[in-house]
């Protein structure tokens, strides 16, 4: 009996609390940068596409809503020929972001995605690619990787020594 009274009292006292509900869409709640909303593809600090089409995000995706195809540029960089996310299937779980070895794919705090046509929820690369590095400002995969691309030869990545001369007899 006592506990029921206490409960009633507490509920009553909530009438005087500050309200958390806001008048959406006039007023928008704060969403932290790490919030998991609409997915973007970012660029590295030099402004090049970060995504190397490794397909790990697609493999991690539990609803299989990412499809892409690798192609290779003249300058040796791997790049997606197309990159498609079917947001009508996406559950915004963020596993793709976790899987991505290049910080290319990131979830943003934008959650305002609603359409009358499911087909409009299908985003291609041109819809996904943004101009900046997103949440991670400094990372550039190709500075770490051993493959050579235009402007970065063998042995020029971080922590690499110049290519060895295999004909040399020096010890």
């Amino acid at each position: 009996m006592w506990s029921q009274l206490v409960t009633l009292w507490r509920v009553f006292m909530h009438l005087f609390d500050r309200t958390d509900t806001v008048e959406y869409p006039e007023q928008k709640p704060y969403l932290a940068p790490r919030y998991r909303g609409r997915i973007v593809l970012t660029r590295d600090p030099d402004g090049d596409e970060r995504c190397v089409a490794c397909n790990l995000c697609a493999a991690a995706c539990p609803v299989d809503c990412i499809a892409l195809q690798k192609t290779e540029d003249e300058d040796g960089r791997w790049r997606p020929e197309f990159f498609r996310i079917n947001f009508s299937r996406c559950i915004l779980c963020g596993l793709c972001e976790e899987a991505c070895p290049t910080y290319a794919i990131q979830l943003t705090p934008d959650v305002e995605m609603a359409e009358f046509q499911r087909t409009n929820m299908v985003y291609e690369k041109e819809h996904l690619l943004i101009d900046g590095p997103g949440k991670y400002h400094d990372y550039s995969f190709y500075r770490k990787a051993g493959i050579s691309i235009k402007g970065k030869g063998k042995g020029e990545a971080d922590n690499e020594s110049p290519p060895v001369d295999i004909r040399s007899l020096m010890p």
Binding site: D64, R84, R118
Partner: peptide, 14 residues
């Protein structure tokens, strides 16, 4: 681990 099942045809049909 086959991926992209719900996206690869999505540009043609959902």
């Amino acid at each position: 681990r086959y991926s992209g099942r719900t996206a690869m045809l999505a540009n043609q049909t959902v």
